[in-house]
Amino acid sequence: MPSLKSIARRFSDRAFGTAFDHALARSRHAPRNSFLFYWNRGMGDVALCLVPLFARIRSETPGARIAVITRDELKAPFELADVDEVYVLPGLQREARVDLAGACTTLGLDLGEFGTVFDYPDPNRWLEGRRDEFPPTLSWNPQWDVHAERLLPLPRNQIVIGAHVHSETAGYYGYVKDWPAAAWQSLFARFAVAERVHWILFGRTPGPPYDGANISDLRGRTDFAELLSIIKNRCRLLIAPDSGVLTMVYYLDVAFPLDVISLWSDPRQGILRQGCSSPNPLLRHIPLYGAREDIRNLSVAAVESAVRAALGSGVRQPASDCRRQP
């Protein structure tokens, strides 16, 4: 049940506007039509939270300059997010707060050049009740397509399934986000080489090995652009927990055939919370939920069944613009 404080805050935001509403209103009279965001939280929130804010800025203040200061890991994701400039603060660790004036000095920027500055955005609050106004979309960079052939020159007759076996962000949340390693291993074992299935493992860092002659482990061996290129150009299907990888793939605004099986503990998070279909008309989404909101209760048999159903299905149906996910 919401606290009295959160109820009062929600009422105030709806009655009088959020801090973002007020900043946007002031920007229309500012001498500099420019916005600076400092963002050092999750990758998935670049699409889920910031892209809708950027889109609203573009809609209400045409010609605005949007710049972001962030950590190195998020530079490439922001390049797909319709921003004008991305600045990487050296050595920045996730969630670290900074003195923005000092950060600008380090980067050779003049903080005074920006008419509106968000040093610690609160997009979940600012988007409450308005998430369907500007559904997230991420532009694809066609120059990234070449990475797939270089990194994964597999025969075309193989069925490539991508597996993001660990969200790598579980430590930032108060619940279990990851399907157990033993469950992944059991799933891989249920698809023999004779079925032409080839598994590709994704992740930022190397992890414990998985056994299987039909597994290519790319964990720790791809950057963000390479990972997305492989998923876009090689994968027939992607299986992933609620993660930045899942979110960024889901909101790519480019048509390519892909079935996505997502694995969940909390169905009130991520792309399910956003509630909009992918802008990719050839993407089909199959969310699976662990009983009692625990991904560890999701059986291997249930995931296997979803994989086989997806592989045996016909032509993908175009998605609508914005609807609640099942």
Results as ranks from 00 to 15, higher is better:
residue 154 L to S: 03
residue 130 R to A: 14
residue 206 P to I: 04
residue 130 R to N: 10
residue 32 R to C: 02
residue 26 R to D: 03
residue 122 D to E: 14
residue 102 G to C: 09
residue 86 V to D: 02
residue 321 D to C: 06
residue 106 T to Y: 00
residue 252 L to D: 09
residue 326 P to R: 13
residue 185 Q to A: 15
residue 134 F to V: 02
residue 276 C to H: 08
residue 317 Q to W: 00
residue 303 V to L: 08
residue 115 G to E: 02
residue 186 S to Y: 03
residue 175 Y to I: 02
residue 226 E to C: 05
residue 213 A to T: 09
residue 114 F to W: 14
residue 311 L to D: 05
residue 42 G to A: 12
residue 98 V to G: 04
residue 174 G to Y: 04
residue 14 R to V: 01
residue 182 A to H: 14
residue 212 G to W: 03
residue 85 E to F: 13
residue 219 R to C: 08
residue 287 P to F: 07
residue 102 G to A: 14
residue 169 T to H: 06
residue 189 A to I: 00
residue 158 Q to A: 03
residue 42 G to T: 05
residue 215 I to L: 14
residue 267 P to C: 12
residue 40 N to Y: 05
residue 174 G to K: 12
residue 34 S to D: 03
residue 116 T to W: 01
residue 216 S to E: 08
residue 66 I to P: 13
residue 91 G to V: 02
residue 164 H to R: 12
residue 231 I to G: 04
residue 236 R to H: 14
residue 277 S to T: 08
residue 125 R to P: 00
residue 269 Q to P: 04
residue 127 L to W: 07
residue 82 D to L: 00
residue 249 V to D: 06
residue 180 P to H: 11
residue 101 A to F: 02
residue 312 G to I: 01
residue 313 S to R: 08
residue 96 A to F: 00
residue 70 T to K: 12
residue 175 Y to Q: 09
residue 77 P to M: 14
residue 25 A to T: 01
residue 282 L to F: 11
residue 188 F to E: 13
residue 101 A to V: 04
residue 298 L to Q: 11
residue 299 S to N: 05
residue 150 R to E: 10
residue 19 A to Q: 11
residue 140 W to H: 10
residue 48 L to A: 08
residue 261 I to C: 15
residue 40 N to G: 06
residue 33 N to I: 00
residue 15 A to C: 07
residue 271 I to A: 15
residue 129 G to R: 01
residue 195 E to Y: 11
residue 114 F to Q: 07
residue 73 E to I: 04
residue 214 N to W: 04
residue 151 L to T: 00
residue 231 I to A: 10
residue 92 L to E: 07
residue 200 I to S: 05
residue 275 G to P: 05
residue 67 A to G: 14
residue 8 A to V: 03
residue 293 E to Q: 14
residue 114 F to K: 09
residue 308 R to Q: 05
residue 14 R to L: 07
residue 35 F to C: 05
residue 9 R to A: 04
residue 307 V to L: 03
residue 203 G to P: 05
residue 125 R to C: 02
residue 33 N to H: 08
residue 163 A to I: 11
residue 132 D to G: 05
residue 32 R to H: 10
residue 173 Y to Q: 14
